[in-house]
């Protein structure tokens, strides 16, 4: 569990100006579930935690990652054929079954759609087991919206809404913060399960907007991030008060973490 297993990059898709989706294949790779993350190694440079965005079975992993530092820059530039080190799976999973028989609201901000993509796919794959399904996606600009083809496909079977901070020429969609879409999502507050991922502050505001609509905190699932280094609870970096996010998270029910997120610099 300390040494990464080499996986081959078999596909690289450019998503936005700074974001790519890599498809990796490793022999006899273990199964990863939605919500879990892998530690990806750029050999000689370092290792970063990246959530699963697809695949997860048969040694095939799909990860969408943004170029924000030395390691992600190296991974971002990985060409098909190149080897990347993989450790994992680590962490808790999105509990999609918790939403069976209920309305579903999925709210993503920016690259937060990446870890939620398997949730949308899982829900749509068993569409009749769920009530109304809303997918609300916020991004800085239209060009920062991930997975445009998926969004189009999802629209056929779910209420998919996108909103941007800064419209570009030709954008006729919504402009504003993703929270403004919450009151319009078609969902029965007493019978809805929500899944959120995005910047921590955004998730707090979205969760509060959902709670104002009448959702219970334990029906809101969030994916949190701190500096996960080892993935196994041995390195101490990803603590949030009593929680080791790599081990106890990254996916939590909001009522459990809300008091912790309120404390400055915890």
């Amino acid at each position: 569990m300390t040494a990464p297993v080499p996986y081959r990059v078999v596909d690289r898709r450019v998503e936005t100006a700074d974001t790519v989706t890599l498809e990796l294949v490793g022999e006899d790779g273990p199964a990863f579930a939605p919500g879990q993350f892998a530690m990806l190694t750029a050999y000689g440079i370092g290792e970063v935690p990246i959530s699963l965005s697809g695949g997860g079975r048969g040694g095939r992993l799909i990860h969408t990652l943004r170029n924000v530092g030395a390691v992600t820059a190296a991974l971002h530039g990985a060409a098909p054929g190149q080897m990347i080190g993989v450790r994992g799976p680590f962490g808790t999973t999105w509990d999609v079954d918790a939403a069976r028989g209920h309305d579903v609201v999925i709210v993503a901000g920016g690259i937060g759609l990446a870890p939620l993509r398997p949730v949308v796919e899982a829900v749509l794959a068993r569409r009749d087991e769920f009530g109304r399904v809303s997918v609300l996606v916020g991004a800085r600009t239209p060009g920062d919206l991930l997975y445009p083809a998926d969004l189009r496909r999802w629209r056929q079977r779910a209420d998919v809404r996108t909103i941007v901070d800064r419209p570009a020429d030709g954008w006729t969609g919504e402009v504003g913060l993703v929270t403004t879409l919450i009151p319009r999502a078609e969902a029965d507050p007493d019978n809805t399960v929500a899944y959120l991922c995005g910047p921590e502050v955004m998730m707090r505001f979205v969760a509060e907007a959902l709670i104002r609509r009448g959702l219970a905190g334990h029906d809101i699932h969030v994916s949190l991030e701190r500096d996960m280094r080892c993935g196994a609870g041995w390195c101490g970096h990803c603590q949030l008060g009593p929680l080791l996010l790599c081990r106890d998270g990254p996916v939590f029910r909001y009522d459990r973490v809300e008091p912790l997120l309120r404390v400055r610099e915890l």
Binding site: G44, E47, H237
Partner: peptide, 25 residues
């Protein structure tokens, strides 16, 4: 027990290692 890691390579880039060292909160 907290630790951090450092990745190193030799000059040719042919050989890479990861070292772990104590870290402090």
């Amino acid at each position: 027990f907290c630790t951090t890691t450092e990745d190193v390579t030799d000059l040719t880039g042919e050989h890479a290692e990861r070292w772990r060292r104590w870290d402090s909160c």
